[in-house]
Design a protein around this nucleic acid. Structure first.
Lengths: 201, 201
DNA sequence: ACCACTTTTACCCAAATGGGTAAGTGACGA
DNA sequence: TCGTCACTTACCCATTTGGGTAAAAGTGGT
């Protein structure tokens, strides 16, 4: 099954895969919210899933499918390579994560490998995941503070939003800066955005 | 001519376009630095160009082609829709700017229109350009300061980098905040990143 | 019971930041 | 020549921010 919202890309991918004798695209869609229903109907061996989808995002679609079919084999295939996206995709149960500029032989090889139950991660992706694991993870509250920070909020505004004291906000920021290994709020915001911890727009 | 570094997308686009009786992909490449040479050889009626290309970026490729062939008709076809990317692409001489999720009939229509010499901008893109024009533009120096700001530099660090006083940096920041309509450096950095004025990575 | 961690608050103090005002230079065009 | 604008510097002052230290309360696991 192929889930991607670019018609041209789908068409090309179908042609590419169908030229392999042992691979076939049985169903395709551009809508994440359709993915689960189509999976139920067709029970494909492997799912190729883009992360940026209109309506339901790719990660949610993966989770929905794997909630009902825990043995579903999903390969993430996307243009974006932001750390947090990769992490969430793997967390949600994806077996592999490929960027769209992957050469076609590697692509076919990965599909076959995943189909036989293996998990394949290109070294580039594995490195990112390792980096992500190395990064101390943030507590719930720290994430909330960081999120408001990346919206340009001041300490006072953050404290009001979260119904806590400004002193508390500052305390969170101290640990936050240490964990992110930055020296001030601007750097923290930039890192958070670049690493995909928070999303703009 | 089709310039895009995703083989699957190219394949799909070729199939899509060749199914139109009056359209044909005469040459394709995934490398921006090859684009000029291929253009010289084939003189295509219209160029479809992705902006994110390995090696030479899409904008540079467009400029290189239009420097030698000022009548070249280029349509930008990309996944990214950041304001500044759109602006630079149009500045560099692109006749149209489409996102990759454009339905195929609109795509074919745009290619024909551009071929007859027209310039076509989708509503969405036109709005972005208008917004960009509304935005007060920054002076050379202000852009430099903003760029360092988005790297997390402090006023003192910025002043050292630019060989000016910290007071001067603060003066630039004052006008910068006013022009960007933000209240502090963090907001300025966030806006600059979101609007694509500066690029991460 | 004890430890580790999160969340919360507080206080002190130094440094960085932001706003206001003023003013000199040089360049460019009316 | 005059006005505008970019760039530069300076000073004053209020606010914000960040670092250090401390500690209470709650949670969850060993």
């Amino acid at each position: 099954m192929l889930v991607d919202d670019h018609p041209a890309f789908r068409k090309g991918m179908v042609a590419l895969l169908d030229s392999e004798p042992d691979l076939r695209v049985v169903v395709e869609t551009g809508d994440g919210s359709e993915a689960l229903e189509l999976y139920r109907q067709t029970k494909p061996d492997v799912v190729l899933m883009d992360l940026r989808l209109p309506g339901m995002g790719g990660v949610e679609a993966i989770m929905a499918i794997r909630k009902e079919f825990s043995d579903a084999r999903v390969i993430v295939l996307t243009t974006f390579d932001m750390d947090e996206d990769i992490f969430r995709a793997i967390q949600s149960g994806a077996k592999s994560y490929l960027l769209k500029d992957t050469p076609e032989d590697e692509l076919a090889g990965t599909i076959r490998a995943v189909h036989t139950g293996r998990e394949i991660l290109p070294q580039k992706v594995a490195e990112r995941l390792a980096a992500r694991r190395r990064r101390a993870d943030l507590s719930q509250r720290e994430t909330e503070v960081l999120s408001l920070l990346t919206k340009g909020r001041s300490n006072k505004e953050i404290s009001n939003s979260l119904f806590i004291t400004e002193d508390t906000v500052k305390a969170h920021l101290k640990t936050l800066f240490a964990k992110l290994n930055v020296k001030d709020r601007t750097e923290a915001a930039i890192n958070a955005i670049r690493q995909g911890i928070v999303h703009l727009e």
